[in-house]
């Protein structure tokens, strides 16, 4: 990654300042990201702490004035893949490329036109949307979090995830269709309950 080529030589005071003013303000967003990736509170805590300590260790490769949030999110995502994904309970996605190819086919695009209305969202006052999000495959839930919750631009997402912008765009589109599909299942089951 090109950022690692930059080597600053911050003093301890500068390091502390960057950590407090640029890294710490992102800690809630980072914790949420860690939780949505691992889906376990304890793993999320470990992942967050590992990431922050790693960020501090590599603070000299962070360029002051650049996007600290994107830099931190990228470290967290890489730590998750290298250290957590392997041991997570989620079944391994060996055939992920197949999955992605499937969701990218025009065929699926036509099939998935979830029947979901704004009014049914109004009834989802509990954990429905959070559960729906968590039920998506990790790569799909990741793009929704980065875009819809954290407001990253496609270009920033491409850097965080190490994928081309076109893939960001199409993955987001599929992810949102899948989320709607899940929500419309909930809406249906809620409808049955009140009927």
């Amino acid at each position: 990654m090109e950022e690692e080529l930059i080597k600053n030589n911050y003093t301890d005071a500068q390091k502390q300042e960057i950590f407090d003013k640029e890294f710490m303000p992102n800690i809630n967003a980072m914790y949420n990201f860690a939780y949505r990736l691992t889906l376990e509170r304890d793993d999320a805590k470990d992942l967050l702490q590992d990431t922050y300590l790693k960020a501090f260790r590599f603070i000299d490769s962070f360029q002051k004035g650049t996007n600290a949030k994107a830099w931190l999110f990228r470290i967290l995502k890489n730590s998750f893949i290298n250290d957590y994904r392997k041991k997570s309970k989620e079944p391994s996605k060996v055939d992920y490329q197949e999955v992605e190819a499937y969701y990218n086919s025009e065929e699926v695009d036509r099939q998935i036109t979830p029947d979901l209305r704004v009014e049914s969202l109004g009834n989802m006052i509990g954990d429905e949307i959070s559960n729906a999000l968590n039920s998506l495959d990790v790569d799909f839930r990741t793009v929704i979090i980065l875009c819809d919750l954290e407001g990253f631009k496609y270009e920033e997402m491409a850097k965080i995830l190490d994928i081309p912008i076109g893939t960001v765009r199409s993955r987001l589109h599929r992810a949102r269709n899948l989320l709607k599909e899940k929500l419309s299942e909930y809406a249906k089951s809620m409808g049955y309950k009140t009927a």
């Binding site: 809630n28 704004v118 989802m124 979090i145 819809d148 949102r176």
Partner: peptide, 17 residues
Amino acid sequence: LEVAIRDLLRKKCANQA
């Protein structure tokens, strides 16, 4: 629908460390 889902996500899917 898109706007409502985004609102709901932001309201319901954030967590505090």
